[in-house]
Amino acid sequence: MPTSSEVLHALPLPALVVGGDRRIADQNAAASDLFRGDLTGRHLATAIRQPALLDAVEAVIEGTTSTTARYLVTTHGQEQIFDVHIAALESDHSVLMAFVDTAPQEEAGQMRSDFVANVSHELRTPLTALTGFIETLRGPARDDAAARARFLNIMAEEAGRMNRLVTDLLSLSRVEDMARMRPTDLVDLDQVIAMVATTLGPAAADRQVELVIQPCDEQPVLVTGDRDQLTQVVTNLTENAIKYGREGGNVRITTRALEQVPAFKGPGVEVSVEDDGDGIDPKHLGRLTERFYRVDTHRSREMGGTGLGLAIVKHIVNRHRGRLRIESAMGQGSTFTVTLPAAAAG
């Protein structure tokens, strides 16, 4: 049977053992990292000057079986909060203190709160518009045919905006639910690109944008993936390039086979979607895949964007164990490149 010391040093959490004399009898490597050194032999009150935590340890030494307290520490200007689980070790009348970092749970909670706030904000504008137009149509514009037609067109646009938002939210939820499920279909990316180009042809024509497709010289270009999700990746990237690139410009979609990709330890396939628009300020590049993050909020909404397209792309690419690279410079357009592991031969 392992000794208490062996168990202590096997724990992944920072942990201390405090003796009945209130001195620290032992600590593991994770605790050494947390406290930046060896506390062994020091009196607990001199090592940890937090009264609530010291009172909790004292209560367990005096007879309470176990309890929980909080430990706060500031590292590099950032506050960390730990839940400290304190339990008596009856074998040698000492106390075990295990420190659990609460940051992941708090970050998850903050993300949920931000997500709900963002969704509420995105829905509030069209709902407010719809409510206002309905009241107007019921009152002052009841008998005004021209106003009624104009308001109904705007209401249809706002309803469409809400529908796109709900569709993207559901899509993002499905992608997240499938994050740990490895896709198994054999997908030819050039076929996917050709289908997307056909589907988005009318949207490109509306902005007088020429779609230039450059397929890979090596045919076919196969990856192991989810065909519907990879179609969504190419669609989202191409649709963005058409919307936010230069009107009357070009959108180039290129496929390349890569003999060796270090991250995959094997061959890969690269799909690039390039526009010749105004480009994106480098300060925005690191945040483009965040949910609801927009470089130009007003323009994005005018174009029908939901702020979720690139977040969906990122999650799909991650599910496929791929990489997403974004390159842009002001006045020089933008290039979004997805690199995926090539399907195994045979």
Rank of each mutant, 00 (worst) to 15 (best):
G245T: 07
A241V: 03
L285Y: 08
G309D: 03
D217K: 10
L222V: 04
E239F: 11
T306P: 11
L258K: 12
L258A: 08
L310P: 10
G305Y: 05
I316F: 12
I242P: 09
V313P: 08
G249V: 11
S272W: 06
A257D: 12
Q214S: 13
V221W: 00
V209C: 01
D206I: 00
L288M: 14
T231K: 08
A311H: 13
K283W: 00
V269F: 12
V261G: 09
Q229N: 07
H320A: 04
N318W: 07
V317G: 07
E302A: 15
D228K: 07
L211K: 02
A203F: 00
G248S: 03
C216P: 04
R291W: 01
G286W: 08
V234I: 15
V273A: 09
N318L: 14
R227C: 02
L237Q: 08
E218A: 14
V313D: 08
Q260V: 11
P215W: 00
I312K: 06
E270G: 09
D296C: 10
G322A: 07
E259G: 15
R319P: 04
H298N: 13
K243L: 10
R287I: 01
L211Q: 01
L230E: 02
Q232T: 14
H320I: 06
L288W: 10
G277L: 02
L288S: 12
T238Q: 00
E247C: 01
V212K: 04
G245I: 01
H298V: 15
G277S: 03
A241G: 05
D217W: 05
I316H: 10
G268Q: 08
V221P: 01
V295W: 10
R287N: 11
M303H: 13
D278I: 14
P215Y: 01
A257P: 04
T289H: 05
S272A: 15
T254W: 06
R323S: 12
I242V: 13
G279N: 09
